[in-house]
Amino acid sequence: MNNVYKLKIFDFEGPIEKLVELIEDKKLEINELSLAQITADFLNYLENLTSQIQSEENKKQYLQILSSFVVMASRLIFIKSKSLLNFNLEKDEEEEKAIKDLEHRLRWFKEFRPALKIIKNLWLKNIIFSRSYLEKKFLVSHIFAPGNLKDAFFAPEYLNKIFGEFEKILKEEKTLAKNIISLEEKIKSLLAHFKLVQETNFSKLSENASRQELIVTFLAILHLAREGLISLEQNGYFSDIIIKKRNHE
């Protein structure tokens, strides 16, 4: 029961906080020189993370997170190599800007860092208790039977909300599936159609079509007309579009 609501998530300090920590450990100011000095430490940290991720079950999903660290590491190596080589590397304005931006972010985070300690100190020290709406609680406890209060702590009153979110996601997936009618497919099917018929009209083509399909059909017709494969005729505003196949001599 204890693990019912637990979501396992691989978790570590972000690159910015880690850099601020490394710089502060060495009692350095935030500038290019100190960034060069802590490059090796940051690379160690990255290596450590990578080996931890290797042992994780779903390591693929962490690659996105890891990539931010790799970008940061490459920037540090660039800074380091600049400081080691005693001549000016070709000026790369974009890279210079990125380094300035990085310093700016590090200064910001250094000032903000005490806030993390404040939150850590407050966390679960003096909890304010309240309870969920009786009816909902009744429902939830009958379906999910939360174990002790510690497990239930994070969940019952939010379960409804979570299920609401899931429903939204499920619905979204449905519409996405319907959406997929590619223009290319439509054009192909129209070309096949015109092998059989000489003339048709838009309402016939879009019979029973969904809104999305209607739009794709319309785009496909415009495309074919531009290519000179069909001609379009409309005898009045909002009247049906007559589509004729153009025969090339």
């Binding site: 300090e13 903000f112 993390l116 404040i118 510690k150 702590f153």
Partner: peptide, 22 residues
């Protein structure tokens, strides 16, 4: 409940929650 309630905040949670709170 004769039990101490404890659950640690991980580093990433702490960074993210602090930003959202402030």
């Amino acid at each position: 409940i004769k039990k101490e309630i404890s659950e640690d905040l991980t580093p990433a949670s702490l960074e993210t929650l602090a930003l959202i709170l402030y």
